[in-house]
Design a protein around this nucleic acid. Structure first.
Lengths: 152, 152
DNA sequence: CTATTTGCAAATAATTTGCAGTGCG
DNA sequence: CGCACTGCAAATTATTTGCAAATAG
């Protein structure tokens, strides 16, 4: 589930590339914020990214993490997710994938599906605008949560 | 696009029914908050709902609107949406549908698709938990926004 | 060198909560 | 009538911003 070391390496290189090309400066903080998101498949929120980065860069501030995450979004190096009633979360998995979210514990799992990737956009929708991204969101109760007693 | 008068009536009846059955009290404020969401297809946020309700119940407070919207979510009388970088929005359309969201202006349009409603849940996902809802989210630039000059 | 970026602290935006009075069942 | 519900004001939480010092290119 977790990205492999050489995948991370590839992502880091791509990150440096895109950053340079954009004209933004390649700072230590930015490197580590991106790495932190790329290292996990758990869709961390800003605060969690901060915790992780601090272990390597103790002086980094939460607002730099926020600023960096927003920059990464702009550069399309990561995407974001907003579960209902929770904070924004981030995802460095940029290959076409979809999500399962547990309504109880908030866990989000990536999954792949050629069928979901190949949906036919209804004509009526094409008339609304230009579709740039298709994402299927499945919600339910994860098995761990169904086991533990009952509801909230 | 806007719900028809007798559809609204039907929804209001269902609302009263569910509310009573839940043991919660049927107050004037709750009626009007639900009506406000049911009246529109525009997925208003809490503040917008408040504006609308105030025209009919000038004394209603924003926090009552929030509390009521959360209650309605709990009772599954409405659902919510969280566009990236925007506030929470509400939807009283409870039939199976999907969304197109403009990344520029934030407009959200409902649409229907038998194909999208009938997706085959991958085995790997079934193993993760019990799927309760499937929603396809299309993002892009709406035609209105593509026309107006350029990006942000 | 110099424009960006950072850390700090303070501001804002959105949502939530405690409490005393009000009203539905 | 009593407890749930409301409005008010104040608290919290998440995120954003201004500014002086630090630093990448």
């Amino acid at each position: 589930m977790k990205p492999l070391p050489d995948e991370i390496q590839k992502k880091m290189n791509h990150f440096k590339d895109v950053l340079r090309r954009s004209g933004a400066k390649l700072t230590h903080q930015r490197m580590e914020v991106f790495r932190e998101v790329a290292l996990t498949a758990e869709h961390p929120d800003a605060e969690t990214v901060w915790q992780g980065v601090r272990e390597r860069v103790p002086s980094v501030s939460l607002d730099t993490v926020y600023r960096t995450l927003l920059l990464l979004l702009d550069l399309e190096l990561i995407t974001s997710l907003r579960p209902t009633r929770e904070r924004m979360r981030f995802d460095a998995n940029m290959s076409s994938h979809h999500h399962f979210m547990c309504r109880q514990c908030g866990t989000i799992c990536d999954f792949y599906s050629p069928e979901f990737d190949a949906l036919t956009i209804p004509k009526a929708v094409k008339a609304l605008g230009n579709i740039e991204r298709t994402r299927v969101e499945l919600r339910g109760l994860c098995s761990r949560c169904s086991k533990s007693k009952r509801g909230k």
